[in-house]
Amino acid sequence: MQRFPRLGRILARRPRPASLLAAGTAVVILGSLGTIGASDATPADFASKDDAAAAYNDGWADGRADLMGDDNRDGRVDEDETGWDCTTMGNRECGPAVPPQCKGEAEFADLCATVATRPAYAWTDADGTPHTIAAGRKLLTRIDAVPGTEEFAAALFALDTQWAQHNQP
């Protein structure tokens, strides 16, 4: 036999204002105590005190620099470092950089590099038809011929001629 048979039904059906006030007051008090007693620690206080993370990050940077050929670890590959490649970096002494799409093109490498550096452009025909041409690197990826072949050279000359017709006075 239950000791208080109707207590469960009464609490479930109609909460009393006093019980609501007591629950709200408890939430406010506990929240205030949590705010007052909160720690003023910063994330640096919880950081590891050993040098494992620093050693890991140094190893990562060194590995990346080794992969790039960056001997002095400054994030750039200069001309006097082992990773310098005149054909891909480009400078005043080497001429323009040769893009990856031109690898294998020996005879017209300068023309290929010139086509690759050209920006996208557009023009409108005399009848009002608009035409949009992608940037040079995108156009080089669309050439179906292998660099170094006559077909590739012909496509380069066609792209160069088209650009000159619409962009030079």
Rank of each mutant, 00 (worst) to 15 (best):
F46N: 06
Y56V: 05
G83D: 13
M68C: 04
I36H: 02
M68D: 06
D66I: 12
W60S: 00
R92G: 03
A53I: 04
T35N: 12
G95D: 05
T35Y: 15
A55V: 00
G83E: 07
N72I: 05
G63Y: 05
Q101A: 12
W60R: 11
A47Y: 04
G90E: 00
G59P: 00
T82R: 09
N72H: 01
P100K: 13
E79K: 01
A38E: 07
K103F: 10
D71V: 00
R73L: 08
G37T: 14
P96C: 01
E93D: 08
T35W: 15
R73K: 06
S39Q: 12
R64D: 08
D66Y: 10
C86G: 10
T42K: 11
P43Y: 09
W60Y: 07
G59V: 02
A41G: 00
C86A: 14
V77P: 00
E79I: 10
W84E: 01
D58W: 00
M89Q: 05
M68S: 03
D45Y: 12
G104P: 14
P100I: 09
G90C: 02
G37R: 15
G90K: 08
D45G: 08
S48N: 15
G69K: 03
G59N: 06
W60H: 03
K103Y: 08
T88G: 03
A38G: 05
D40F: 09
K49S: 06
G104D: 04
C102W: 11
A53F: 10
R76N: 01
V98D: 07
A44N: 12
T82V: 10
D85N: 14
R76W: 02
R64H: 02
S39I: 09
C86M: 06
R92M: 07
S48H: 14
C102D: 04
A55T: 03
A44S: 13
A52T: 10
G59A: 10
N57K: 15
L67I: 11
D50H: 13
A52H: 03
D74H: 00
D85H: 12
C94K: 02
A41H: 01
D85S: 13
D51C: 06
E93M: 04
V98I: 15
P99W: 10
T88A: 07
P43N: 08
D40I: 03
A97F: 09
A97K: 15
D50C: 14
F46S: 07
S39K: 09
I36M: 04
S39A: 13
I36G: 02
D50A: 13
C102G: 11
R73E: 02
A38S: 06
A52L: 06
Y56G: 01
A47I: 03
W84A: 04
S39P: 12
E81Q: 08
T88I: 10
P96T: 05
E93I: 05
